[in-house]
Design a protein around this nucleic acid. Structure first.
Lengths: 229, 229
DNA sequence: TAGTGGTCTAGACCACTCA
DNA sequence: GAGTGGTCTAGACCACTAT
């Protein structure tokens, strides 16, 4: 069988793990390795690029390819729509709008969404439930200039989370994971003690330089976000 | 200038965002698109594969390429060595071993590391500090069969975290992010109130089918893990 | 400035999977 | 069975950067 990129990658990793190529050392260049493994340079290039993406090697033009001294591993975390997350657990998704109003946002939100000084924004609080039990609580500000149509969206039927994903798909954004203590009102919602720890995601969404929405999502106590390295 | 994969990708995304290719619709195949954009099929293939990796389109042999109905975004999170994390903040890293002993692990750890019934494992608790302030607290079990040399490692000088990254680099593993309430002892360490919320990472590490270590890492209250979508 | 990786082209064959 | 994506080859030129 012909050598594939995946095979070659494994064999290269072996040479690193075995210590044949120590951390920080320079390894042969693409052309030499391609010849050694009997493949085209393009194939070896793909294999080495994959290793670079994983953080195992560092590649520089003219500088060659080196085994990473400080391999930084990356985890790829899926950020699904909450409905999908609940349904993936085999439970029934429902949501309830707790607050929905158009008003002046606080300064931090105004800065984040890059709004003008006296510009209103849409504020929505949504409780997401799994089998009627609270699953996550969402606080969201929406830039009405960026998505004016949301004024007419049936948010009782389709959550702002879903509506935005369908309407402004493929946006860019920033995500922050953290842990916060639930305030009293949220503790009541989740039927737990005040100050219980909640896994929390803070997220902003934009398309190009147009800031669309800023959201805080508090998950139910005990929620875990899992992934493979 | 010749059309590059990145240019083409942007132009394809535009056609999706503009609604020309609605969610769920099938888009032309590689060869047609390559002809339309005046590039080789391999180039178009790379562009489309990138979109597939981002979750924007779904590709199937014979089935063609479709715009994803439910785009699942992914965030790529770096999992650095804690020393690097602290030093990236411009602070000085130190660590202190709180506990270090070889003993029988609890059942959950025994299962996770796939140890025999009466097999000892190394238990280490480490406090990681930034400018002498507690930064994160690590509880770790190490499979001594997998890395016997750790018995002789100078763990006071180099933390188990760093030693393992250098010794068994490029391992696979599972990562779980969650929020937990600090117990009393940890609250004292972090100089905060008991039950304060702590961003917590649970992680296991393996090479092939060899389980090396299981670790719980409690970050200081207020810690945030940031990334871009 | 020369060596190295980055990436495109044109062609080929293969592997899935839908009809 | 036929259409589509998956991926390899061989060659070329370009862009960065270490020396």
């Amino acid at each position: 069988m012909r050598a594939t990129q995946a095979d070659i990658r494994k064999r290269l990793i072996d040479r690193i793990q075995s210590g044949e190529w120590p951390l920080g050392s320079r390894i042969p260049d693409e052309s030499d390795l391609a010849e050694e493994y009997g493949c085209a340079r393009a194939t070896m290039n793909r294999a080495l690029q994959a290793l670079a993406t994983e953080g195992l090697v560092i590649r520089k033009r003219k500088g060659g390819t080196r085994v990473s001294l400080r391999p930084v591993r990356h985890a790829r975390v899926a950020i699904p729509v909450i409905r999908d997350q609940v349904e993936a657990l085999g439970e029934t998704y429902t949501h309830r709008i707790v607050t929905q109003e158009t008003r002046l946002p606080p300064e931090t939100i105004r800065d984040t969404l890059q709004l003008h000084a006296q510009q209103d924004a849409l504020f929505i609080e949504t409780l997401h439930c799994a089998d009627d039990r609270p699953f996550a609580f969402e606080r969201r500000w929406v830039n009405l200039d960026a998505v004016p149509d949301i004024r007419n969206a049936p948010l009782e039927t389709i959550s702002a989370n879903e509506w935005l994903v369908q309407t402004v798909p493929f946006s860019d954004g920033q995500v922050t994971f953290t842990a916060v203590a639930l305030d009293t009102a949220l503790a009541v919602l989740f039927d737990t003690a005040p100050r219980t720890a909640s896994f929390t995601i803070y997220r902003t969404t934009q398309i190009d330089d147009r800031f669309i929405t800023a959201m805080t999502l508090h998950y139910q106590p005990g929620y875990e976000l899992r992934t493979a390295l």
